[in-house]
Design a protein around this nucleic acid. Structure first.
Lengths: 197, 197
DNA sequence: CCCGTTAATTATCTTTTGTTAATTCTGCCA
DNA sequence: TGGCAGAATTAACAAAAGATAATTAACGGG
C-alpha cells in the first residue's frame, strides 16, 4: 500500500502525475525526522538529496576562514531544501544545512527521480516551476541588497515572515541580512525609539 | 531562405532542435540594433521580449522614490536578457533596461515560442537550463552580499569580468555592488594605496 | 580649441557598521 | 534554586559608508 504522506507529497509536487509512476517514486522516498541541531547536509558532501519540509526550519550556513559564521538562507515548512551546489552544479556543498527546530521532511534522491522521470512532461514542468520559484525569490533578495539599507531589509523581513523572529535567534537573522548581531541589536533599538518618540 | 544568424541563435539555444521547428521560430524572431542609451524595456511595460545579446551591454536599473538610481544587473554578449518580472512573473517590469553600448540582439516573443514549442523536450530542456544558469548566478551574487564586504565584492568583480571596468562607468558599478559612487572611489583609493605601500 | 556637460575624485561632516569586550538577560538543568 | 552557557544588549572606539558640496578630470560637439 502506498504511503499517504508520500503520495500527497508527489501529488503536490507533480500536479497531474501519472499514477503509474507513483510506486517507483515512493520507493525512492523516505521520511525523516531531524532534531534541533541535527546536520542535514554537511559542508563538503556531494549530496543529491532533496527534501520537502513538512514542518520545521532548516538553516544553511557557511564558516569563513576567520571562523565567522554566516547564515546564507533559511528554509521552512512547505519549502524545498537541497544543496544547490550539488543539485544545480554537481559539486560538493560549500555550506552546512542543519535543523533549527524539530523538522520532519520527505526526502528523495534527486538523481533517482531524475532517472525515473526523464522525459516525463509532468516532471519537467515541476522541475522548471521549482527552479523558477527559487529564481524569483533569489532575484528579490538580490534587489533587497542593492536597493535597501540593512534597516529596511530587517523591516521587510519581519513583515514578510514575522514568525521568524520567534523561531530564529537574532544572530542568525543578522547574518542573513548581511550584518552583525550587534548591528541588528542597534537597528532594533533605533526602530523602537523612533516609535516611542 | 533561413537567416543564418537566427538559425545559429536557435541551434545554440536549443541544442538538438528539430529542424522542422526552425522556420516557425525564425519568423517569430527579429534582429535589432540598439544604440548607447536606447531603452530596451521601460519600467511599467509588460514585455514578453527575450533577447540574446550578440554584442554589447545592457543595464537594468531602478529609480526609487527619492530619485536615486540603482543598477540591478548587467548583461553582456552571449547572455540572455529579458524582463524577469514579465517573463517569470507575468507582471509589468519594475525596471528599465537600456543599452550602454551599441548592442546587437536577436529577439523573440517569449509567449510565441512558448506556444510553438509547448511539450517539445528540447525546449523544455533549454528553458530549464536557462533558468538554472540564472539561478546559479543569482545565488552566487546573494552569497557575495552575505559573505563579503563591499571591497571584496569589488575585487571579485574586476577579477571575474575585468573588461567591465572599461565598459561601465564607476557610478553604475558602484550601485551594482550596493554602494555609492563616492564610496567606490574611496575603495579604489584604499586598494591602490595598499599596493604602493 | 574652447566650452559645457558629466563623471570621478576629494573634502567635510554625519551616520552607520564593525570590532571587542563588558554587562545583562534568559532558559535550562543538575 | 543556584549556577552556568549562550544570547542579547550595551559600551567604547575604529573603520567604513552615506550625504552633500566643491574641485578636478574627461570627453564630445560646436
Amino acid at each position: 500500500m502506498l504511503d499517504p504522506d508520500k503520495t500527497a507529497f508527489y501529488i503536490h509536487l507533480f500536479k497531474g502525475i501519472d499514477p503509474a509512476d507513483l510506486p517507483g517514486l515512493i520507493s525512492a522516498t523516505q521520511q525523516r525526522q531531524l532534531e534541533p541541531g541535527d546536520v542535514y547536509i554537511r559542508e563538503g558532501e556531494n549530496s543529491p538529496r532533496l527534501a520537502y519540509i513538512k514542518e520545521g526550519l532548516i538553516r544553511c550556513y557557511h564558516i569563513n576562514e576567520k571562523g565567522i559564521e554566516s547564515t546564507v538562507l533559511l528554509r521552512w515548512e512547505e519549502q524545498i531544501v537541497a544543496s544547490y551546489d550539488s543539485i544545480l552544479l554537481g559539486k560538493p556543498s560549500r555550506f552546512t544545512y542543519h535543523a533549527l527546530e524539530a523538522t520532519s521532511i520527505v526526502e528523495v534522491n534527486y538523481d533517482v527521480i531524475q532517472k525515473l522521470l526523464a522525459n516525463k512532461p509532468v516532471f519537467e514542468q515541476a522541475r522548471y516551476q521549482f527552479v523558477l520559484d527559487m529564481l524569483a525569490q533569489s532575484l528579490e533578495r538580490i534587489e533587497s541588497f542593492v536597493l535597501q539599507t540593512p534597516e529596511e531589509r530587517y523591516l521587510q523581513l519581519i513583515q514578510d515572515k514575522p514568525d521568524l523572529l520567534q523561531r530564529v535567534s537574532d544572530k542568525h537573522l543578522a547574518t542573513l541580512l548581511g550584518i552583525t548581531p550587534v548591528s541588528l541589536s542597534r537597528i532594533r533599538k533605533r526602530i523602537t525609539s523612533r516609535y516611542s518618540r
